[in-house]
């Protein structure tokens, strides 16, 4: 019973739930709460999957022990063994994926850090104090990005972005990038990249990554808006679009439209945020209380 419940939960949290979340744009209006919800759903899915495997393994072991009949005995041990093996495979895949994603990201960032440090043209006396992480590299295309890392984070602007933006718009871009660095958005993205690498067949993992990617942008936009104002952030976005963007897609509005919509939003969204926080907590706590605790108690008894 426990196995079945946990397995169903794992499937729901890995498939339909993220699918639904990714198709609920209203969540973006409370980006922080939405981010918490995404993380708790992902964590609960992994825990439920591992829990289902362990539950089946222990059920098999107990049934095997309690039964005198030789044939049944062997059968249950096979079930237990397979369940345990499956659990270990899931866990191993996750750990391997985390390792691969992590080392690849760190290598890429190290390389970029070396390059931008070398190519930096930013006059170092300008903007003294707390601005040491800024690098300006030659480039005709307006471009801004950040390289996360404790103690070696960099905010990189292309020369075109640095010169092309007004002082306040540049400030908004920097505030946006610094918000990414401060809140360690890269870690969240890394976790969801790991999930997608580990379980690419779960279609929702791609949608989850894309949506979480949008949420971190929305959060950083909000941080910029807090220091400047909505119009300033919008002008910064416009300035960064000035040059032709490679691979620009035609048709329906994408990520940028969603960011603009949230930037313009002035409504009080606290009730929605509270609801999402409550759901996030429930997603993690309810399975523990209703399924795992009774199961553990039954094991002891």
């Amino acid at each position: 019973m426990t196995t079945l419940l946990l397995a169903l939960l794992a499937v729901a949290l890995a498939g339909p739930v993220p699918w639904l979340l990714a198709r609920t744009p209203a969540l973006r209006f409370t980006p922080r709460a939405a981010m918490v919800l995404w993380q708790s759903v992902a964590l609960a899915a992994v825990l439920a999957a591992l829990g289902a495997g362990l539950a089946l393994a222990t059920t098999g072991l107990l049934a095997g022990k309690g039964n005198g009949d030789g044939k049944e005995w062997a059968g249950w041990y096979v079930v237990a063994g397979l369940a345990l093996l499956l659990t270990l495979v899931v866990l191993g895949r996750l750990l391997l994926s985390a390792h691969l994603v992590g080392s690849r990201l760190r290598a890429l960032r190290r390389r970029h850090r070396d390059l931008v440090d070398l190519l930096d043209e930013h006059p170092s006396d300008e903007w003294a104090g707390g601005r040491r992480s800024l690098r300006v590299v030659p480039g005709e295309v307006p471009m801004a990005y950040c390289l996360p890392g404790v103690g070696r984070a960099r905010v990189v602007l292309s020369d075109a972005a640095y010169r092309g933006l007004g002082e306040r718009e540049r400030g908004a871009v920097l505030a946006h990038e610094r918000a990414h660095l401060r809140a360690r958005h890269d870690l969240v993205l890394e976790a969801f990249t790991t999930l997608r690498r580990a379980f690419p067949a779960v279609v929702s993992s791609q949608g989850a990554l894309a949506e979480v990617g949008l949420l971190v942008e929305v959060l950083a936009d909000r941080a910029a808006r807090a220091n400047y104002d909505t119009a300033c952030v919008l002008r910064a976005l416009e300035g960064m679009l000035d040059a032709p963007v490679p691979h620009a897609t035609l048709g329906a509005g994408g990520e940028l439209s969603a960011r603009i919509e949230v930037l313009l939003d002035e409504r009080d969204r606290r009730p929605q945020a509270v609801l999402l926080y409550a759901v996030s907590a429930a997603v993690l706590l309810l399975p523990t209380v209703l399924v795992v605790l009774p199961w553990l108690t039954s094991l002891r008894g």
């Binding site: 970029h112 471009m143 801004a144 990005y145 871009v173 958005h185 990249t193 976005l237 960064m240 940028l256």
Partner: peptide, 9 residues
């Protein structure tokens, strides 16, 4: 999106 760099737009 591999999170190595997070571009502004």
């Amino acid at each position: 999106r591999t999170a190595a760099l997070v571009a502004f737009v």
